[in-house]
């Protein structure tokens, strides 16, 4: 099931002494260190995971998560609660990452148009014919590695849509591409992931046979 992009909260138990998010936001507006920390603790995993998935680099992801939270705290006085706080933070985090990718001259989305797939991306007639099936389930760690090895453009769209739950029209606005391009990139990303996962399974199967 696709996750809701609006819900960034950590799966934490609410305790009597724990600040509610609304309280933490109000106190953070007054410069309360404890409130800043509470908001960080509540959202750090989601923000950091987003940064890590989109960059595939731990050090960069930590720097970007730090930057996202700092921007959040600098702007928190302007938060009026019209939208969910988590949605606001999430969009801000995505923007921080995309800005970083653009500075590095990495493509936010692949430059190719939807109708101009490369030979590698073009539909194949032999798919699924002789390779290993992804029967049952996909291992999280395997998928993580496969996502990390996607080309940056594909990775961005896959992370935003399938992991973070954005719709194509939202991705088009955020990433500056057409809706059709977003759909096309996502499909190609999934196909690429499928290939990568199958390759890994085939390698494992080969090793176990050899061993």
């Amino acid at each position: 099931m696709r996750p809701e992009k609006g819900d960034l909260t950590e799966p934490r138990q609410q305790q009597g002494t724990e600040l509610s998010e609304a309280e933490a936001i109000e106190r953070a507006k007054l410069g309360d260190a404890e409130a800043f920390r509470a908001l960080y603790d509540k959202h750090k995993r989601r923000v950091y995971s987003l940064c890590l998935r989109m960059t595939a680099n731990t050090a960069e992801a930590e720097d970007l998560a730090q930057e996202a939270f700092l921007q959040l705290y600098r702007k928190i006085a302007t938060f009026r609660g019209e939208s969910a706080f988590s949605t606001w933070l999430h969009r801000l985090s995505v923007n921080v990452v995309l800005m970083h990718l653009r500075k590095k001259s990495l493509p936010v989305v692949s430059l190719e148009e939807t109708t101009q797939g490369t030979e590698e991306d073009s539909p194949r007639k032999d798919f699924g014919a002789e390779d290993v099936a992804l029967a049952g389930s996909v291992d999280r760690m395997q998928l993580q590695r496969a996502v990390d090895s996607l080309p940056p453009g594909y990775r961005t769209i896959f992370v935003l849509h399938d992991i973070e739950g954005y719709e194509h029209n939202e991705i088009a606005k955020i990433a500056g591409c057409s809706i059709g391009n977003s759909k096309s990139q996502l499909h190609k990303a999934r196909m690429k992931l499928r290939d990568l996962l199958k390759m890994e399974r085939a390698e494992k199967a080969g090793k176990s046979r050899a061993g």
């Binding site: 999280r140 998928l143 399938d162 992991i163 196909m191 499928r194």
Partner: peptide
């Protein structure tokens, strides 16, 4: 592809900084 889509959700908030 459905399996991949379903598994993708598990990558959300999976990492601790």
């Amino acid at each position: 592809l459905d399996l991949i889509i379903a598994a993708a959700g598990e990558l959300q908030a999976a990492e601790e900084p």
